[in-house]
Design a protein around this nucleic acid. Structure first.
Lengths: 216, 216, 216, 216
DNA sequence: AATGAATGAGAATTCATTCAT
DNA sequence: CATGAATGAATTCTCATTCAT
């Protein structure tokens, strides 16, 4: 109670992690331009100086946050064990995971938007993220092949386009839930609305991959 | 002595329009937080003071830009004459229009993202936009009904969810084209990639609305 | 007396000049690295923002100060009317002017030092200063030629080296008057010491240019 | 476990010397105001904390550097053996040494400038430096006396003024070589320019001390 | 209606120095 | 003796906004 505690931590890794977590939250809430280094320092419990010491500056901190975010979602996908499920179950599981990930990690969406606003310059040339993404797309391609072999999926579905579409239908809904609420006149975030959307999304993807008449 | 031409324009409407156009560009490029009033003034050719005179401030200018953007896209949809087309043609036309609108008006995407980052507070309570949106959704609902009556579309497809999905698959792809390029390793904006995505999107939506086996 | 005076001036030229004067003083006192933008703003009576508005930044302000300083001393030299004096009188006059200029404008010395500390990068490529300097050296060359023609000066004295030497013997003494006082144990700035040094300097230069035995 | 070698040196004298050398370089390059303690620590290979341990702080470190610099040049002068040379040779030797010392120890010049910018407060009251300086001036006075006795030098030349002048003509040229290059339009540091200047300087001093007509 | 000089509050970043180990 | 993480106080610079003309 009476001990002075001038230095909150002598653990650099913990300090870095705390800064990163606070930065993720602040960048997600305000974007790169609107985020305040002061707030990040305060929220992280670290000294502002530490941000510059460990990350070099606001933009480099942002870059670290974005890389971390992508690494995290890719790691979640890897742990789904998709290759142990039937093709249809795997696809459903992936749609659900993607949806739930966005729902439980809403910072991910605004971070990705911020990075795109800045033309992806903070991850440009990042080989690690490219590799993680490739692994992910390959695993989806494997599902599609299994499905096609079993005669339940159409042949020649582009795995990358499918990945994009699975992300799109969840990302867009949750990203635009605020303007959506105003424009459509219902609460996008209500339990019922969320459940309905997930069902619609799963349906959309299943109809997309399912064998069926040639259209268009 | 009397020959100075200090006032570039005595046309308030033109001045407002110039400011709005410059603001749209700047807000789209940098977001609300990153946009600079100075730049908007400079780019618009108007005096900075005019921004405050006509719009009241940065945030109010942003609100005007966002409202203008939504009004513009809704107006584009109205002019498609969807009710004069066959249900399938109408849906295709709408998917294509939405895609092309985003492609040709990339500011729209980042403006919508910015507004959502700020929880839609600048359009919150905007009855006009709500009304325009309702007209749009109703027109889509009418298409779905016609399609169901003709036996080419499934019954009971939720028009709002369909609208969201049509937007999502184009919006997400184009919004995330920069990070997508880095992660997927191909140029999302190449002529071929854009054509392939539009085809995939049309296919996705047609399979979604088409009659077919019950899934899920 | 009772009027509020929120804006100290609507005269941009006066504001710029005030900033420049305050900056000269501060940079001279503390060097580029030690000078404080805040102090300059305060001393100039202008808002700090104005410094950035008019000059762009601390370094550019420094560059403006240095250019101004060189322009000023060159202008002083031009006004001496050296070509109307006898060669010997002209040389004496120049030695005295140079000495007095440094004495009355001590900032000049430290500004020049600062600029040299920074490898002259702020005036690098400045054609105007090069031209002013050339005019000055040419006027000294003309004196030397007149002196040689009259048989009072040696032939083939390098005008640039002479200019440098005239500057050196005054500049060094005044520049190093503080360390000099400590090391030599007398007050370099006393009236007597200053007078003695000026006499010594004039003597040095006159002996340097005077006809006389070949040495060395 | 016990094999870590965390302490680079248990040699306090070496550590102090390393810090001093790094500090000399950094202070010379950036001035007192512009020098960075971090850089000194890094360049010296020592821990930043050591600077405070051994020197007390940035300013005290600067004081140590300046004292060291003066001690070093005085020691060089002492080793010239001037009293074993003829008066003229001794003077030439001194001019050359001074020139070469500045040329080979360019930090000396900027350190002296920095100290003068700060009004010599770091060496103020330093008896040791005063004493070294006195020995040096006395040795020059002895040369002048010998020269006068031999009839080759003028009588009553002020030894201190001569010392100052010998320093001045080299110091100024080298100190201002960067601005000089821009203003005069030639490279002050080229081999030829340096040789020409040394010759000019020697000539200047020899003419100054040589017997000759009374001037002024 | 239009101008642009001026401002104060606040933003990112830097720095010399100290503390716990 | 030696380390390097941590700090608080400055310091440079930016920005939305207002005032006098």
């Amino acid at each position: 109670m009476g001990e002075k505690m001038p230095f909150r931590s002598r653990n650099p890794e913990a300090t870095k992690a705390d800064i990163l977590a606070a930065a993720r939250s602040e960048f997600a809430k305000a974007g790169l331009g609107g985020a305040r280094v002061d707030k990040i320092a305060e929220q992280s419990g670290a000294n502002k100086r530490m941000i510059y010491h460990y990350f070099g500056g606001k933009e480099q901190l942002f870059a670290a946050v974005v890389e971390d975010a992508y690494t995290h979602i890719r790691s979640g996908e890897r742990e789904l064990g998709l290759d142990e499920l039937s093709p249809t179950e795997a696809i459903c599981r992936l749609v659900e995971f993607t949806w739930r990930y966005y729902l439980e990690n809403p910072e991910f969406i605004t971070l990705v938007n911020s990075e795109n606003l800045h033309l992806a310059k903070h991850i440009s040339g990042n080989r690690q993220l490219r590799k993680l993404q490739k692994n992910y797309v390959d695993s989806v391609a494997a599902i599609l092949e299994r499905g096609a072999a079993q005669g339940v999926f159409r042949k020649d579905i582009d795995a990358a386009q499918l990945c994009i579409t699975i992300a799109a239908i969840g990302f867009y809904y949750l990203n635009n839930r605020h303007t959506g609420g105003v424009l459509f006149g219902f609460n996008f975030a209500s339990r019922e609305a969320l459940a309905a959307r997930l069902k619609f999304n799963t349906d959309t993807i299943l109809r997309l991959v399912a064998v069926g008449p040639m259209l268009g």
